[in-house]
């Protein structure tokens, strides 16, 4: 049997996962709802009507990170419970295509959630206008999402076939995600400064890109070992 091209496999896996999501709506609505609820929680918990600078950046990114955990916990559940892993291992496809497909799924989920959460944040809590921050913020969103997707796809696979997956997923992934949070939060903090945006320090984009690349390599090197049984 000839081995199918990796891109074909990745696209097929991606389509299957997205179709599953469109039929069940397990992750995306929950993530969007969670983000908006979290903004409300911060409003009441901090007792503020508008945020700027460090605080705004931190609230936005902590919310997105926690929303991402909902997807990280779920992204492999169908594969683990309904034989998806077994079927995939029996197929001649390259193992790492599954990791790549799950990363893409997480990236798409995060992008959709941010389409809802970032405008909601701008309306509900952000003091300066979103438009001044948006151009350089896009880079932070891309590199931040990439980091979450890389670590989420690896840790999700690690946690899904354990007996405490809902606990282990967040507990293992959050410490690994702290450098990502540090990078994106420090990156966008000056963009949210109240009267006018400050300058972005160049080191945060570099640090994030490097972190994403290193953990991407680690994930691809180790993913095969999580699949064999």
């Amino acid at each position: 049997m000839t081995r199918p091209a990796s891109s074909t496999v990745v696209l097929a896996l991606l389509r299957a996962q997205l179709r599953l999501e469109l039929r069940t709506f397990e992750s995306l609505p929950a993530m969007c709802l969670f983000s908006v609820t979290a903004f409300l929680l911060f409003h009441f918990g901090l007792d503020v009507d508008s945020l700027s600078g460090n605080l705004a950046s931190g609230v936005l990114w902590v919310t997105l990170l926690l929303a991402a955990l909902l997807a990280i916990n779920r992204v492999y559940v169908a594969d683990a419970e309904q034989g998806g892993f077994d079927a995939f291992v029996l197929s001649p496809a390259e193992r790492s295509t599954l990791l790549l497909a799950k990363m893409l799924v997480l990236l798409i989920y995060l992008a959709v959630v941010e389409l809802v959460a970032v405008p909601a944040f701008a309306i509900l809590l952000l003091e300066p206008s979103l438009w001044q921050a948006l151009p350089s913020m896009l880079g932070a969103l891309v590199l931040g999402n990439l980091g979450i997707a890389v670590i989420g796809a690896l840790v999700g696979a690690l946690a899904v076939r354990t007996q405490a997956r809902d606990l282990l997923g967040p507990l293992v992934s959050l410490p690994l995600l702290v450098p990502v949070l540090l990078g994106v939060a420090r990156w966008t903090a000056p963009l949210f400064d109240a009267p006018r945006a400050g300058a972005v320090a160049l080191r945060w984009p570099l640090v994030l890109a490097l972190y994403d690349a290193i953990f991407g390599l680690i994930a691809f090197a180790l993913f095969d070992f999580l699949l064999e049984d």
Binding site: L158, V178, P179, G183, I214, F215, I218, L226
Partner: peptide, 21 residues
Amino acid sequence: RYASVFAITAGAFVPINFAIV
């Protein structure tokens, strides 16, 4: 097997994390 995957990921995280923070 899973513990080893964890130990390698976390072992790589130790120096990287120190550098970033």
